[in-house]
Amino acid sequence: MSLSPALRTILALETSCDETAAAVVRDGRVIVSNVVASQIDIHRRFGGVVPEVASRQHILALDAVVRAALAPLEAGWSAIDAVAATRGPGLAGALLTGLHAAKGLAWARGLPLIAVNHVEAHVYASWLDDGSGREPPRPPLVVLIVSGGHTLLAHLADAGALQVLGQTRDDAAGEAFDKVARLLGLGFPGGPAIERAARSATGAAPLPRAWLRESDDFSFSGLKTAVLHQVRAAGPTLDDAQRAGLAAAFQESVVDVLVRKTCDAARRLAVGGIVLAGGVAANQRLRAALLAQAPVPVWIPPLALCTDNAAMIAAAAFWRQAPGLAHGLACDVAPTLRLGQV
């Protein structure tokens, strides 16, 4: 991947779901600042993200978050070469707040605007310097993106050329965690709740795995239904031990399918590495299993860069400049933007 000399320092905004985030990143790699204001406590009482509430919270938080992201810059605005923002996928109203804030900033400062695909940006989190001194991954790579809204396996043959190999046919992995946590009465967000409950499990009958062997696609709806069946069968006698067992069995099933399909794709395409991205990459079982089974080196960003953040948006904006990515101020949000579209 070649460096683009023109737009080296990028201010990025991310508001696709329930985190209001801004970051400044230099050369697509060095994090100058990375600020995230989480709304998770506000949404917890609803057991999910409420779109209208999320949009309003973004509006309240954006000014302070952007100021905090710019604060470490001694030269202030004059150090910024471009403004980037997420245009999709995500909640329409939430996306509008960040994209339009970015437009206003770009217009007022006479800077170029770069609109970014949120899912693609998760991949570029692995290009950010995490302080480990490790070199960033080099294509060709297989990428597994797992989050609340997305589960997909992609092939990054070269810079910017992300090709989808397979995706979920029903629920996203993170969504399956949320829904199963709901079935088990474990609370929201489901990922950490399931992981916590699973840790106290003392053995559980395995749940089914949907391999869909003819493709790289995933399916988690049947697994959710299998948990539902067990919950129904137990009825009101379902106790904490059974909950923990089901949480563990569910997590093992999801992790097993994700890891094996990713490793199979890496072998088949003879790539040099695997990148794990998205909020579900925070799951310790998934990280451990992938590291143990992968036939090639694995890159996993630190936890703070796996969940939604703006540093990855800045990185994606930087690394995607070479293929040509300038958006006019008339660009619109794209709530159902697919991978491969920008």
Binding site: C17, P51, L91, G149, R169, D171, A172, E175, P335, T336
Partner: peptide
């Protein structure tokens, strides 16, 4: 197109 869960984006088209 395959129908996927609309839970995250609220509406799919």
């Amino acid at each position: 197109d395959a129908v996927t869960s609309p839970t995250f984006v609220v509406i799919q088209h």
